[in-house]
Computed example of a mutant assay.
Amino acid sequence: MRVLVEWMPRLREAMATANALPRPVKALHIFSRHDGQPYTMSGFNSLVQRLQRAWEAAGNERFTIHDMRAKAVTKLRDEGRQAKDITGHKSDQAIDSTYDRRRVRKGSAVE
């Protein structure tokens, strides 16, 4: 299943900021090495780990890409939206067991 996610103002702003960063050469990739080539998986992981150490040293808690996805799913659920429309999952089962991290789940009483 393909999922098309709309551009939101914060995403547009983040992309504009990333594209405005100085680069020694024109690159086709948003995140690229100094020579304009894409990072290898190992290089990208190393970059992410350096950023995470700096984030943690500033007093924040480390997180993973999976944590970001779980946060998005939880927010969608809190707003009453269908998370599977955004994640691409066919059912709610994987979402319920893996990504939904609400501490308290709310529901309406039946009359």
Rank of each mutant, 00 (worst) to 15 (best):
D100Y: 05
G36L: 09
W55N: 04
G80L: 11
A16L: 12
I30C: 00
R77A: 05
G36Y: 00
M15Q: 03
V25K: 07
E13N: 09
N19R: 12
V110Y: 00
R33I: 00
A20K: 03
A16S: 13
S42A: 15
K26C: 03
S42W: 13
K71L: 12
H89R: 09
T87C: 07
I65H: 06
I86R: 01
M1I: 06
R102S: 10
A20R: 01
A83M: 12
S32Q: 03
H29K: 00
A109H: 15
Q52D: 06
G80Y: 03
K90D: 08
V25T: 15
K71H: 07
A83I: 01
T74F: 02
V3K: 11
G80V: 04
Q82E: 13
M8Y: 06
I65A: 13
A83R: 00
G107Y: 13
N60T: 00
H34C: 04
T87D: 03
Q37I: 04
S46I: 05
R105H: 05
I95D: 00
G107D: 07
Q49N: 10
V110G: 04
A109R: 12
Y99W: 04
R105S: 08
M15T: 11
K75R: 14
V110S: 09
E79S: 14
V5Q: 09
P24E: 14
S97F: 03
L51N: 03
P38M: 01
M15D: 12
Y99V: 00
Q52R: 02
F63M: 15
A20V: 00
A18I: 11
Q82V: 10
L28H: 08
W55H: 15
L11K: 09
A14W: 12
G88E: 07
R23G: 14
V104S: 14
T98W: 01
G80R: 02
S108N: 12
A109N: 13
N60C: 07
D85K: 07
Q52V: 01
L51P: 00
R53M: 09
Q49Y: 03
A57Q: 13
A54S: 10
A70H: 14
I86A: 13
G107R: 11
R12M: 08
R50P: 01
W7S: 12
E111S: 11
P38W: 05
F63S: 08
H89C: 07
A16T: 14
R103N: 11
G88F: 06
D67K: 11
R101K: 15
E56Y: 09
E56F: 10
Q93Y: 13
M41P: 07
V5K: 06
S97E: 08
L76A: 13
Q37T: 15
E13I: 04
L51E: 06
E6S: 10
H34E: 13
K90A: 02
D92C: 04
D100C: 04
V3M: 03
P24K: 12
I86M: 14
G59M: 09
E56N: 08
Y39I: 00
K26D: 08
P9V: 03
S91H: 04
K90L: 10
G59E: 10
S91K: 06
G36A: 08
V3G: 04
G59R: 10
G59N: 04
A58R: 12
R105I: 05
R101I: 07
W55C: 11
L76C: 10
